[in-house]
Design a protein around this nucleic acid. Structure first.
Length: 555
RNA sequence: GCCCCCGUAGCUCAGUGGAUAGAGCAGCUGCCUUCUAAGCAGUUGGCCGCACGUUCGAAUCGUGCCGGGGGCACCA
């Protein structure tokens, strides 16, 4: 019996109690679902519900009395071994081993689809993250968004949503010109300008461009700036795409800011905003009245010199996403960009949308980095860059992704690069992957012994050991973990869950022998445990996949 | 001044209104002739920043303080 099945059975019990007149609850106050949770202490049964506490007021009866009425009916449910009333009115439910063990068969039968839920089916979601300037490598500061953004997309998909991963290429504006200027200077053997880019990669890029295009050096300085800028752009974008692919973060859409101008999207966007009546002129500039919608000041769309601002691009971009039919637009931004939130929401509101629904901004705290106990800060312009590529080289994709996904985005991460490089079990990814490898090894040994996992012959009542019950309980939680991770946009819940599952498995493994020893014959108990192992392996693999981390068969 | 985030064990951090607040690391003590010891068992360690409020019930929700971080451009 899965938690979902138990929950709906409890709802039927409630309905029956009302129908028989034992409880008097008005139809419009009756709950549409009954929440159950796994108690922290095993003394409190396999599942507990607070439904009696919540209904006490509506039913005008003391909570324990409501609980008593329900307990009698719950006890009669098939698969339920015992029901206790505890504390102020909790109902603690203990399942029969067979009812609980059945879950192993369910999971093995469903395979990769176990844990896929339908809570977000039919919702179209755009997840925009990283969105760097194409003038340098993807660095450690972007890495968190690469890992978390992709994991959010995967979790939303597992909940049934239709998801687009999108990268907004900031290929327009002053930063790009500074980049071109820096390349030009480097190519001509001169130092980069004060406000330019000083990283060692600038020289490398410049050298590579000159090797391919000697003719650039014959152009006028202004022409050189453009030529180097464009060649550097193409090269850096390619490199960003390659390294992100290596990091298993694939985007569905690479959206160029320039293309918003080339396609006329900016003009159309401005016209649309004007039509909605939130645009006005003042001091020679064109403004959007975002203060109508909670912003603390109005924002400039077109400057006094006739240049459009990034905000004009952002507005056009939102309207473009909207036209492409997304219900929810998620943005992952660093804490230093939190001032954007009200602006983005105001754009949506000016366009006539409800920003509470269509705009979600996840503000992530920055990653602090230490090396040997000493903090260092990233600066692209100064050239202090640790690239994503470096990180992958040092710790590998799995450890990097897992570590970055393991914390809620609003909590700051402190990474000690030396520690991360060590690859010891300080890093929980190894703990989880080890559990998967351990089961895989065991399943190989079982195959050598001609022990097959037989879904037909499986006897769930044999999984009666406490550790088996604990493990089954954790396995049953997985679909709910996926659903809540998706709903809250918090993939770290999956990581934490996997650690809990790995612990439950290791404990089971420690006290329950799975394979027959030596000349021993295989018994139905061995086979039942093998089924449980197979189910656990499946859930570990499914969960790791949501984080984009591999599930190794050997370690 | 205004806005956002954070204050939980020595350290790094979990904990979407539930029962005795958890994990890893660090420290101490045990467990491998048989399925992967990257594991397991035990033990030490807490005014959940402070106060008041809402609730049958608050680390969790609200208000006010205190402390730390970040942000408030006709820059991108």
């Amino acid at each position: 019996m899965t938690p979902a099945e138990l929950s709906s059975a409890l709802l039927s019990v409630l309905d029956a109690a009302v129908a028989s007149g034992e409880l008097d609850i008005p139809a419009d106050r009756r709950p549409t679902s009954v929440t159950i949770e796994r108690p922290r202490s095993t003394d409190h049964g396999d599942y507990a519900t607070n439904v009696a506490l919540q209904l006490a007021k509506v039913a005008a009866r003391p909570p324990r009395e409501v609980a008593t009425v329900l307990a009698e009916r719950i006890t009669a449910l098939p698969g339920v071994a015992a029901v206790d009333i505890a504390g102020p009115g909790f109902l603690n439910i203990t399942l029969e081993a067979a009812a609980q063990g059945e879950l192993a068969r369910t999971i093995v039968g469903q395979g990769e689809s176990y844990g896929r839920v339908t809570t977000m089916t039919g919702t179209r979601v755009n997840v925009e993250f990283i969105s760097a300037n194409p003038n340098g490598p993807i660095h450690l500061g972007h890495a968190r968004w690469a890992a978390v953004g992709d994991a959010i997309a995967r979790v939303l998909e597992a909940a049934g949503a239709d998801v687009a991963r999108e990268f907004y290429i900031n290929d327009r504006g002053v930063q790009m010109d500074r980049f071109g200027e820096s390349l030009r200077e480097a190519a001509n053997g001169r130092p980069a300008p004060e406000d330019g880019y000083h990283g060692g990669y600038v020289t490398e890029v410049a050298t590579a461009i000159v090797a391919e295009h000697r003719e650039f050096l014959k152009l006028t300085p202004d022409e050189q700036l453009v030529a180097f800028r464009e060649a550097g752009y193409a090269q850096q974008l390619k490199q960003q795409q390659d390294v992100l692919a290596l990091f298993r973060t694939e985007f569905d859409v690479w959206y160029s800011e320039r293309s918003l101008y080339e396609s006329g999207a900016v003009e159309r966007g401005l016209a649309a905003l004007r039509e909605q009546g939130h645009v006005y002129e003042q001091d020679g500039a064109l403004w959007l009245r975002t203060t109508d919608f909670d912003d603390d000041k109005d924002r400039v769309l077109i400057k006094g010199d006739g240049e459009t601002t990034y905000f004009a691009s952002d507005s056009a971009y939102y309207l473009d996403k909207r036209a492409r039919g997304f219900d929810i637009n998620i943005y992952l931004l660093g804490a230093d960009h939190h001032g954007y939130v009200n602006r983005l929401r105001a754009i949506a509101a000016c366009a006539g949308d409800d920003p509470n629904y269509s705009i979600e901004v996840l503000i992530g705290q920055l990653v602090k980095m230490f090396r040997g106990g000493e903090e260092f800060r990233l600066s692209k312009r100064k050239g202090d860059i640790v690239t994503l590529e470096d990180l992958i080289d040092e710790v590998g994709v799995d450890a990097a992704r897992y570590t970055l996904c393991r914390y809620p985005v609003d909590s700051p991460i402190t990474l000690d690069l030396e520690l991360l490089v060590k690859q010891t079990n300080d890093n929980p990814v190894f703990y989880v992957q080890y559990a998967h490898a351990r089961i895989s090894s065991l399943l190989r040994s079982a195959a050598d012994l001609r022990l097959l996992i037989d879904v037909e012959k499986f006897d769930p009542s044999l999984l009666s050991h406490d550790r088996e019950g604990d493990l089954l309980g954790v396995l049953g939680e997985y679909p709910r973990v996926v659903a809540s991770s998706a709903e809250l946009r918090e993939p770290h819940r999956v990581a934490r869950y996997l650690e809990e599952l790995a612990t439950a498995y290791h404990k089971f493994y420690d006290s329950c022998r799975v394979l027959p020893r030596g000349d021993e014959d295989a018994t139905p108990t061995h086979e039942a445990r093998l089924m449980l192992c197979s189910a656990t392996r499946q859930v570990l693999a499914n969960g790791l996949d949501l984080l984009g981390v591999s599930a190794p068969k050997r370690m």
